[in-house]
Amino acid sequence: MYKLTIEENTYSCQPDETVLDALLRENVNISYACKKGTCHSCMVRSPDILPPQAAQAGLKNTLKKHNHFLACLCHPEQDMVIKLPDQSEFYTQGTVVANEMLNRNTLLLIIAFKDAFEFNAGQFVNLQRPDGLTRSYSIANTPQESNTLEFHIRRLANGRFSEWLHDELKVGDTVAVSEPRGHCFYLPERSDQGILLVGTGTGLAPLAGILTDALAHGHSGPIYLFHGSREVEDLYRIDEMRQLSRQHENFHYVPCVSGHHVPEGFGHGRVNEVALSSLTDLKGWRVFLCGHPEMVNQMKKMTFLKGAASADIYADAFLASPS
């Protein structure tokens, strides 16, 4: 019999019970449906130890890496601490060390921490204002770069949180930052695999982190980044990305503009259409999508139809604001 610990409470798991059986018997409020490992409704996390392998069957590699597992398939092999998905999270105070504009409406915000902040490039955190208002933002840098997190924040009309970040927050102010979340990140495996990154607006943030991470790990397969917006003034980091593509033969960068005025060197049209017409066969590719919800949904389907395996298509449930 093993102990299951959730926050301050401890439950016992009988030898013939799964974690889900035990928690339901103990009246713990946990979501579940099929109890057979197919629906993934009862996915939880083991923060300190590797869960039994059988309990991770069918999960994406990035979820496995962070010790997510299915409670309905888990017969514990030792005592376990369990984190439920909706459990209140732990916030760390960071200090703003930079805030400057990346283009006419996107703010670069860099927050520094006393201790190392563990995350994978491409994950997101919740930022919290002193009054409790909270919003999710993708991390744009990689963990190798000192104890800082970088964010790209687009000003939204009447967006209470983005206006606060743009207009009121100053260098030296503190911000509460949650633990990192999300399974849209790079894993250093199959390094000859093609990688397709497609983003609109500030959807570039997680993609830039993933790109930097993949290049730092010596990913050798072709990497394509398509970054789109209606007008060229709403794109950013163009020169930096072009510079990167000159330094790395396998990295290809295509900024796209869907509006009327298209300068030389830019793809013309919606970023998803440009990407799909450039790459016709995605069999064996890894795909990362971020930005406009419609673009992300349409591209999940299209990249799958063009051959990418569903397990290789990454897009977080949290979507960056539309551009």
Partner: peptide, 23 residues
């Protein structure tokens, strides 16, 4: 439909069609 949710549903459907465990 959402691709990811749908893929999970297709998996349960195939499991059933293959005579496997289902609810």
């Amino acid at each position: 439909v959402d691709m990811e949710k749908q893929a999970a549903k297709q998996k349960s459907f195939l499991t059933m069609a293959f005579g496997g465990p289902h609810n």
